[in-house]
Design a protein around this nucleic acid. Structure first.
Lengths: 340, 340
DNA sequence: CTGAAAGCGCTTACAG
DNA sequence: CTGAAAGCGCTTACAG
């Protein structure tokens, strides 16, 4: 193993102090350092292939320029896309990101945060799983900078960057109503997560506003653990009830994909027999025979806002709290058009 | 800001040395430390909420337990899936991963490696872009542990974990030949990357072995930058030549998705009019009307082997070189069956 | 069984 | 314009 060369090595060879080397290599105090000395130091550093030791620097300055990113699952496209945005935005500010997948488990999430804390991440961006309120409160109490992304807990006063799930759902439902559909079903995930509940609430609010009475009757909430089976069952129920459904709104892309597979297997034509709207994009929609209407989340803005907010929060002493809400966009395609 | 509490704090409160605190909290020298003292130290650590400072430890032991992961693009499902496997495997060995997307650029890849080196990653797992041979040689010369994943450079003697692209392509082509198709086209990416060239080579070798003469005549290599347009064009050419094509083999999933979209728009039926095989999986296949035959890469094994190899390499003094080749699996579905 | 001490590679007041 | 020195929070021979 070749020894890594340090500032001290450079200083000794040149007969100067490490302080001077540090100032020069960091471009500090430039106006009051002898140009010649500075140049010599730079040259030797180049020549020896000096690489700063960020670990030592971190220890000294008590900052690592590291962001801990806690996602649901990096292999999920939503998480992966967000990760990419966050990576790019972090890099602009010289931050590096360490990531972990919490798999919707509060325990795993806590483990990850603990690990990243011992590695002295400067702050966290967290897609928080159900049941992590306590952990988040404790982080806040410890004055650890973090921002929640995607999910949030209305009772917690912490930094958040989320989309307006209520509004997006209402808009999607209104679009279907405007197309002339009145019997509109929704298939959503059964979970206590607020952002999912907001989607159901937006759907119901739109129906109520349109004068419908029993606005929850066509809402099916399925268990994630048994998702495929329950989606199929929910679709069957919606189709076979006294007043059969004219349109289905899926609460996320995974539900939509399973739903569309099932619908095709039933030989139900879209949009002739049934209209479809989905929350979230998926490149899978591209291979479906009918272009799919979906709600597009502003992922780039979400990720960028989260990084920006986090970095501000790291820099500030007083912990003010910021809640950023972004609007999603309804991309209207053929699957939701009234077939005449 | 609350001050982080350190081993020194614990030692002072208890009137012992930090050495002792270190031994106890790390479970070292257990047999020769007074049980009472040990217990007191542990209790106080708990009580004060002591969190080890991994940065200080890293500086001292000159190891960070960090893996630098260089991917093509974390937002791409192939990269993201790999990242998840690597995350899990790394965690088992107490490693944390920092990642970056190189976007197939040798320069970005170098930047990332430089950054991660100054952060003293113990080693790297790299999906290397075209043109990074020099960088990799230089890493090797500096004795920096790394393993290449997915891509590799046959002229470089370095650790690699790859699949047998030649064999997988040959198998896919043979499958089509066995189904009775003789006019088989392939659409692949035009690139110098060895793993892509191997896919073309496997395809051609299978045709040659089947007695075909001009085995390159139905191979179309498209430019990634102009991918969509060139895929459409390639398909048109293959369909409109004197002996029209009976089957198309796509060199990766992105090519396949664009190809399938185009094929559907031409009202060509699969598998009645045209058989299809694709390299790589995609959840998009799920929404295509015909189940798609594809080559499944053993992602889990790839990632696990890479981490294992890297960690061995970090631990070893002598830099032996290891090349692991895994076999892919052909998942045969309806899209490649001869329609009778 | 335990402590004093050196040192990992930096940064940064302070002094001159 | 530059250097001596302290210190970030650990680990680890060494000594007793």
């Amino acid at each position: 193993m070749k020894k890594n060369i340090s500032m001290k090595d450079i200083a000794q060879r040149l007969g100067v102090s490490t302080a001077l080397v540090s100032y020069v290599l960091n471009g500090q105090l430039e106006d009051r350092i002898n140009k010649d000395t500075a140049q010599k130091i730079k040259n030797l550093a180049d020549e020896l292939g000096y690489r700063p030791n960020h670990v030592a620097k971190s220890l000294k300055i008590n900052k690592t320029l590291t962001i801990g990113l806690i996602l649901a699952d990096i292999s999920n496209p939503f998480s992966a896309n967000l990760a990419r945005i966050i990576e790019d935005e972090a890099k602009k500010h010289k931050y590096t990101v360490i990531f972990g997948s919490a798999d919707e488990s509060a325990d795993k999430s806590e483990d990850l945060i603990r690990t990243f804390m011992s590695r002295r991440a400067d702050g966290f961006i967290i897609a928080a799983p159900e049941g992590s309120e306590e952990l988040l409160s404790s982080l806040k109490k410890q004055d650890i900078p973090f921002v929640l992304i995607d999910r949030y807990f209305p009772e917690l006063q912490v930094n958040t960057v989320t989309i307006n799930n209520f509004q997006a759902s209402a808009e999607a439902t209104n679009h279907l109503l405007e197309q002339g559909f009145s019997e509109i079903g929704m298939i959503n995930l059964k979970a206590d997560l607020f952002h999912l509940a907001e989607r159901s609430r937006g759907y119901k609010a739109a129906l109520t506003q349109a004068g419908q009475k029993d606005e929850g009757k066509n809402l099916k909430e399925v268990d994630e653990k048994n998702m495929i089976k329950e989606v199929h069952q929910a679709i069957n129920e919606l189709l076979n009830q006294p007043e059969p459904i004219q349109a289905i709104f899926f609460g996320n892309n995974n539900l939509a994909i399973e739903g569309l597979i099932h619908i095709r297997s039933l030989n139900i034509r879209i949009p002739e027999d049934l209209a479809i709207v989905c929350f979230d994009e998926s490149n899978a929609y591209n291979l479906f025979y009918c272009p799919v209407t979906y709600i597009r989340q502003p992922l780039a803005k979400l990720g960028q806002a989260a990084v920006k907010l986090l970095i501000e929060s790291i820099g500030n002493q007083e912990r003010s709290t910021n809640n950023i809400t972004l609007e999603a966009e309804l991309i209207i395609q053929k699957s939701s058009q009234k077939y005449i």
